[in-house]
Design a protein around this nucleic acid. Structure first.
Lengths: 235, 235
DNA sequence: AACATCCTTTGACTTAAGTCGGATTTGTCA
DNA sequence: TGACAAATCCGACTTAAGTCAAAGGATGTT
């Protein structure tokens, strides 16, 4: 963890300015926030918080990617969100409950801004801009979860995996290429848990898609050979 | 739909005062809101909005219960929320998107407050109290959806149904009785779609629970004979 | 380089839960 | 009251996807 010096305070201020949640704020307001938050660094696979941990505050990602997940009684892991820079997590208990309701773990080395609960609540109770920005963030996550619920209850694993691949080539910006592709940056175990299945099944899906010449796998990259068929599979 | 008269305006004002989303507001602020909203009445099975409809605004339930659901390409219905008085719905697109992302339907005769988008956005942009209250509401729904995702991806239908029964006896307040019970107020089709299955399967679950003397069904009521076993099933 | 650990793949097997067709039951309205 | 439609239930069948065990690969550590 980085010690907060005056110099550092300026860095935080500049970072905050770029975050969606703090956009449209005056410098004066940004200063109030930068005064209460800390930068925390984590290494790959580090736990950030565990379900049931006493709630202290929430995080915003500066660098790295974070996995938000639950573990069921019989040990099955389901991943709710895979988050990237500028996204926040652990913000729900600001308004509901006194404990973290999920687990958060760094998928690679990560730099996060930590914002403590009490101070932040005091601050936003009289700041409609931050509240409004947070509502936008919450709305996005609600959409995401809603889609997940629908997919899990009415689609089969192959449909969900095809949807995942399409999402990923969009994020990668390769969806307009003649041969769209994506790079596998997380373990297959994580991908499986994200689409609601297990590695064994995912492995079989990959094989099937390759057999049907819909994708081509080369090292850590997956190339889409037949986008039309893939879209049909995603429905 | 009720025509808005002066008298009616006062009624709306009084209703608004009781809603979580508008708690802690001054009378003056409540007046501004009551000035822009309308009461709309719906009959059982009426559609309130459909997925893809152009977004006009959101609703708060005064009376009745509302089902929020999606229909998949192959016609399967998955229910995301079953909402009761004082809860709001259709508020996500205030902050994300220009269309309703889900369907809403009245499960029985219902009375709703409708709040139009543009006017409301203008109003809350400078009102941190309403924003904060909305964040609380969003947080609750996020919790609910998160739990649904976890259940759908790591539990079996019986576990989810047992969980549903436990939730219902809690809501009914009968959970401390020697023989907790709940009343079936919605069709089994709806219950099935809510727990992510079909009526045939639900029918078999009910039979199995009766055979094992865990529940007793009498007309529209389900009595819990063995709460301990039911809790074990819900895990 | 060697070791251990984790990740991934694969085949054989099992099973939960969906599909389908048809039989009942229930509710609704003329 | 009758009769039509909708909701519910049930048995027979099918299948997607999970479990289990075992074998390869990959990765990192000392």
């Amino acid at each position: 963890m980085i010690t907060i010096s005056k110099n550092n305070r300026q860095i935080i201020h500049d970072i905050l300015k770029c975050l969606p949640i703090f956009s449209d704020l005056f410098d004066e307001q940004l200063n109030k926030i930068s005064a209460i938050c800390k930068i925390q660094d984590f290494q790959k696979n580090d736990t950030i918080f565990l379900e049931g941990d006493y709630y202290k505050g929430f995080f915003i990602i500066i660098e790295g990617s974070i996995k938000i997940f639950k573990i069921s009684v019989d040990g099955k892991e389901s991943i709710l969100h895979l988050l990237k820079p500028y996204e926040s997590f652990g913000d729900v208990p600001l308004f509901e409950g006194a404990k973290y309701p999920v687990n958060a773990q760094a998928l690679n080395d990560a730099s996060l801004i930590f914002i403590p609960k009490e101070e932040f609540i005091t601050l936003i109770k009289s700041n409609s801009t931050i509240c409004f920005n947070m509502l936008v963030g919450f709305a996005k996550k609600m959409r995401h979860l809603t889609q997940k619920v629908e997919e899990l209850s009415s689609k089969e694993v192959m449909n969900r995996f095809a949807g995942y691949l399409l999402d990923e080539i969009n994020k990668a910006g390769t969806d307009k290429l003649p041969e769209p592709f994506l790079r596998i940056t997380i373990s297959k175990k994580n991908i499986a848990a994200y689409i609601g299945t297990i590695t064994d099944t995912l492995s079989r899906l990959l094989k099937k898609l390759q057999d049907e010449k819909i994708i081509r796998v080369s090292g850590k990259s997956i190339f889409i050979l037949d986008l039309k068929k893939l879209k049909a599979l995603a429905r």
